[in-house]
């Protein structure tokens, strides 16, 4: 139980959620600050561009805010936000038809990279990365979702099957075809 003098930053997740529900100013801001990077990365992997990922991230946090009363603490706040994020992204993929390749502007690619790479190496890597993300964005929806959840979120086949409402065998087949199509889209260079 948090006392009135306990700083927000020292509250555990349950107490922080309670603070949000008690209209404690800054409580939800702190939740956003702690989880904005992971939420953004999740959204970006689905839509492949910064602008849509930013919009989706906002949607995820708004839905989380509205559903705070439903948070029971049975899972971590990160997992709970993650499930909301996946649903938001899946709904976006369903609504956005036909699928279009993301267009990363030059500015989006020129981000600060703290790794020790020479500028030409970094530019080449950024270019290759942009091509890979563009190719993933062109995959059919279930193949894209399967590849993202398996590759970047290390979800089990069973968990992915639960998300997509399909079988483990179908998930593995989707993953197989996703990787095959990815190779066709990227060509021999990769």
């Amino acid at each position: 139980m948090a006392s009135a003098d306990t700083p927000l930053a020292e509250l555990d997740e349950r107490a922080l959620v309670d603070a949000c529900l008690a209209d404690d100013p800054g409580a939800f801001d702190l939740i956003v600050e702690r989880h904005r990077r992971s939420v953004y990365q999740l959204c970006y992997r689905f839509v492949g561009n910064h602008e849509d990922a930013s919009d989706l991230s906002q949607d995820v946090f708004l839905r989380a805010f509205r559903g705070l009363r439903a948070f029971r603490g049975q899972s971590s706040l990160a997992t709970w936000l993650y499930r909301i994020g996946v649903n938001v992204c899946l709904n976006r993929l369903k609504a956005k038809s036909p699928l279009s390749a993301p267009t990363e502007s030059i500015e989006e690619r020129q981000f600060i990279d703290v790794r020790a790479e020479s500028p030409p190496e970094r530019m080449l890597k950024d270019e290759r990365g942009a091509r890979v993300r563009a190719a993933i964005a062109q995959l059919p929806r279930k193949q894209r979702v399967t590849l993202i959840l398996r590759t970047y979120h290390e979800m089990s086949h069973q968990e992915i099957a639960d998300v997509l409402g399909s079988s483990i065998g179908a998930v593995k087949a989707n993953f197989f075809h996703a990787l095959g199509n990815l190779k066709k889209l990227l060509g021999e260079e990769f």
Partner: peptide, 22 residues
Amino acid sequence: TAAAFDVPEPSPLFWDHLSERV
């Protein structure tokens, strides 16, 4: 290949802007 090319890092200014939007 897919695992090697993840989300590009946005500008450091983006995070506070996202928090402000939310």
